[in-house]
């Protein structure tokens, strides 16, 4: 190892930064890759149904699909508007 190397190691290397960013990104992309293809359409239709009854925004609903060894979970999350807004 040359003298120069000691200076370089003092700050975090860009390679480890790259690895960290890629690990997060690849994990995220792999999980969304395994989602069923009907998910976006279903999300859109669910939103339409909910909007018949409650005035919610486009992003008020989130659907997530998770898969592990022995089960698949479909999680549906709807954020209802504030009470104050509902009363007006």
């Amino acid at each position: 190892m040359s003298l120069l190397d000691y200076f370089k190691i003092s700050k975090e290397s860009t390679a480890s930064l790259a690895k960290e960013r890629l690990q997060i990104l690849v994990a995220h992309e792999r999980s969304s890759r395994n989602q069923p293809s009907y998910l976006p359409q279903m999300q859109k239709e669910l939103l339409e149904v909910i909007r018949k009854y409650i005035n919610v925004g486009q992003d008020a609903i989130s659907v997530s699909f998770e898969q592990d060894e022995d089960q698949e979970t479909l999680e549906l999350n709807i954020v209802l508007p504030d009470l104050q807004l509902k009363n007006t």
């Binding site: 190397d5 370089k8 860009t14 390679a15 690895k19 890629l22």
Partner: peptide, 17 residues
Amino acid sequence: RVKLGEMLSVEDVQDIL
């Protein structure tokens, strides 16, 4: 460049992929 921390190493790429 891998040794200087400027490039992903073989192990890094294998860990990711």
